[in-house]
Design a protein around this nucleic acid. Structure first.
Lengths: 141, 141
DNA sequence: TTAATTTCGGATAAAAGAGTCTTTAATTCT
DNA sequence: AGAATTAAAGACTCTTTTATCCGAAATTAA
């Protein structure tokens, strides 16, 4: 298993890639797909989830493609994960028990809760711009 | 997505359940399955992975079933996760990039590394006995 | 020894996630 | 207006995970 779905990872990598591109123009999905070695048709579908949530914006036609829907400072990794994989990761009980909560905690409730919250906060506090500025390498494939 | 596979969660819940049972006898898998609302045939298969690693021990026949393979102090959650889902969770890059490492880190390398290590340590430091002793409720379904 | 019970092992089925393909709609350029 | 390009949308296939089924092997009890 992995924490995030493959779709989500593709979406994250694409967003980071777009944030890294200097210009403000649309980039064809096929170009990104080739660059990041992601199946193009599949990526198209995934990015639709991000455009519907205004995280990205798309344009059809000759000079069309995809780009960030707002400035990279305003997009957090949490936004992207939430848009593609939903919020269950950040809510769900470690043991996947429906009724687990403060009143009827599962055996692992306490230790997992803080950990899960930390993860959510870490993703919320990491914007695309921060990521671009504070890394040494651009490795995205 | 979830951090752990369903198989792994079933395995964890069963192990905790067994640790909670006072006696030292074998418990039929069908009984556990019914109690924890897990498909019995599926659970049988999952538990085989744990018995092969001596985390649990099993016995066929009339008074047979399954029980912990050693004392609950000596079984950590890490052992169980590792036996069922493997170690990839604790090693893999956040963005699932093959070549990500210290030399060629992915954009998320640093922040994820410590987090992943913490999770591993948390699971290593949590034994079944600790879990049984330090919880208020027994909720496992 | 026979009957009952229970795990083991392999085959198969169902469900979910990942990936492909084709057609349509929007946009640009000539 | 017409041709070329590119995302959107839906149907379909492939793979992995989850779940079911059945016969065989081991163990207990009478």
């Amino acid at each position: 298993m992995a924490l995030l779905s493959k779709s989500c990872l593709y979406g994250l990598r694409t967003a980071i890639y777009c944030a890294h591109q200097s210009g403000n123009g649309y980039i064809p999905i096929s170009e990104i797909a080739k660059e990041l070695e992601i199946p193009a048709d599949f990526l198209t579908k995934i990015l639709q989830k991000l455009t519907r949530k205004k995280i990205m914006s798309s344009l059809r036609g000759v000079k069309g493609g995809i780009k960030l829907g707002k400035s990279s400072e305003k997009i957090s990794l949490y936004d992207i994960v939430q848009a593609i994989d939903g919020e269950t990761i950040f809510r769900k009980c470690f043991l996947d028990l429906e009724g687990c909560g403060e009143e009827t905690p599962c055996p692992f409730h306490e230790s997992w809760k803080s950990y899960r919250t930390d993860l959510g906060n870490m993703l919320k506090n990491t914007s695309l711009s921060y990521l671009i500025e504070n890394r040494k390498y651009a490795r995205l494939k």
